[in-house]
Amino acid sequence: MRDEGFDARPWVLLAPALLALLLLMVIPMAIIFVFSFYEYVDVAVDRPAFQFENWLWFFQDGFYHYAIWQTLRISAITMLVCALLGYVPAYFIANTTYRHKWLLMLLLILPFWVSFIIRQLSWVHVLGSQGIVNAALLWLGVIDAPVRLLYNEATVVMGLVHFLLPFMVLNIYVSLESIDRNLVSAARTLGCTGWQAFCQVTLPLSLPGLAAGSLLCFVLAGGSYVTPLILGGPDDFLFGNLIYDTIMLELNWPMGATLSVVLLALLGSLVAIYGRFMGLSRLYKSLN
């Protein structure tokens, strides 16, 4: 009961996590937010102030708006490709009768043991002008000179998918795994073909996992900047690259802070929308 006095235990247990969040997330983000109102004087020089110059810039400059659009578009494409490519292995792992399921899971997680940068760079050896594909095509005589396969939007999406697919597969797998097998059996005995049972039972009940995986892929893709840097051409930037350039090249910290807050708000609102939506569908999940 509430009026039996204040129970401090949950707060004591939560304290370390809350403290870490406060120190490592909330305070730095607050500082960034404050920075967005500072005044830019010259390269690497700024003055504490409370003015809206940076924000006006952001709202007026169409280039930033285009960057948002491009970021949302590439993230959405990446998310869709991950969902389509991820469902099949997730379904397979969840339904296989193979005894050593953990081995399949291990294969899925194995890439995480290799540095992210290395994984992205490895594509240069595959698709670059000196890469395996070009070498093979040259050797076969299909082409006379190396063709340019890298540094376009498709390779950026490919790199992002390469990095994000395991997140999608794991999320879908977990929700498929939690579906009662008898539900499909029940649907089948009631007259469904295998495909109809999938559409009527398995797919709708795995939507929470698909949604969670999609959100993760979208947000992680939307916040990335290394992949476009390594695998993209000059036009294939994401919003994160603008932040990187503004801070690292132009040394304009106040503007960089402003753009960071924009990206955070953008991706944060997606998470919030998802939270609303999942709050509803949790209801269905908790049934069995």
Binding site: D180, N182, L183, S185, A186, A187, R188, T189, L190, G191, C192, T193, Q196, Q200, V201, P204, L205, Y284, K285, L287, N288
Partner: peptide
């Protein structure tokens, strides 16, 4: 799906995302 048998499971196996009407009507739809 062509055997026309009714199977009842120990754990009920009702479709959690469908209403009772849609659960009971499920077999009739096919």
């Amino acid at each position: 799906h062509k055997r026309n048998l009714g199977l009842v499971f120990q754990n009920y196996a009702l479709f959690p995302h469908k209403t009772i009407f849609d659960n009971v009507a499920f077999g009739l739809r096919y």
